[in-house]
Write a protein that binds this DNA or RNA. Sequence first.
DNA 1: ATGACTGCAAAGCCTTTGCACGCAA
DNA 2: TTGCGTGCAAAGGCTTTGCAGTCAT
Lengths: 144, 144
Amino acid sequence: MATAVDTEWSEHALATLQAAGLRRGGARVVVVEALAGHDCAVSPLQLDEEVPEVGRASVYRTLDQLEELGLIKRIELTPGVAAFERVEVSGHHHHHAVCRNCGRTEAFEDKALEREISRLAKQASFEITEHDVVLRGLCPRCAG
Amino acid sequence: MATAVDTEWSEHALATLQAAGLRRGGARVVVVEALAGHDCAVSPLQLDEEVPEVGRASVYRTLDQLEELGLIKRIELTPGVAAFERVEVSGHHHHHAVCRNCGRTEAFEDKALEREISRLAKQASFEITEHDVVLRGLCPRCAG
DNA sequence: ATGACTGCAAAGCCTTTGCACGCAA
DNA sequence: TTGCGTGCAAAGGCTTTGCAGTCAT
């Protein structure tokens, strides 16, 4: 998980937007690049603070479009607060543990878990395309 | 999974509320009984419609208290819409598949999945007490 | 030139809060 | 009797929508 800006993703995202017939508008590009700098979930309002030059409505509109195109994924780690994460082209992804006291999160990956989930996805009557796993409890600091 | 009212749960819930020093107020009892009649997630507004005699604020307040006491669990199946489910004393529970087109949900249980999750919970640095798994995709009807 | 894109401000929705009355204990 | 519990209405917070000007193509 790189801490640097994910240029591979942002280029892919901008290309996909373009392929979908959307213009490379200023606000759109700025939001995509802001997202490229986050390795984990960001809320729309956080993002809006990071890019004061972009109107809040445009941040929300861009997030909608990116989600629609499968470039980002929506998750809700804290009740009532939406958050978005990049979807890597590789399919590589992680899940989260969230502290119910302070909201701190920890990301984790697990192959065995993914295997069970693919198995379930296949046996479900739905055509499953994504999944979320969230573990909740107390972080080391809050558990004292 | 019974389709009848879960009186075991509602009695346990009312007893727990009482043990927590809360009074057996009219609105509280009505909301608990309404919850006892749902086997899967219900939203606060749905619940409020079912019990017109109870003020909306009381529905929300009661849900907060029940969640606080671990008698119900909050999940978000649809973006921006909270939903609550009873927590069975037995610990027995299910997860959900949600249609991203029509919102229809399907509940499922899986022992192997639960095993993987307990394993992860143990190895995490957090003290994990609960977890959610949501599968998303298209239901048979929407997948056509 | 043309219509998509943007920012701003207003409107919407769900949820929470304030307050005075009513009821459980 | 006491103060918790409740309903109503107002306030809050996040998100969406309308509209007129601007910019990408």
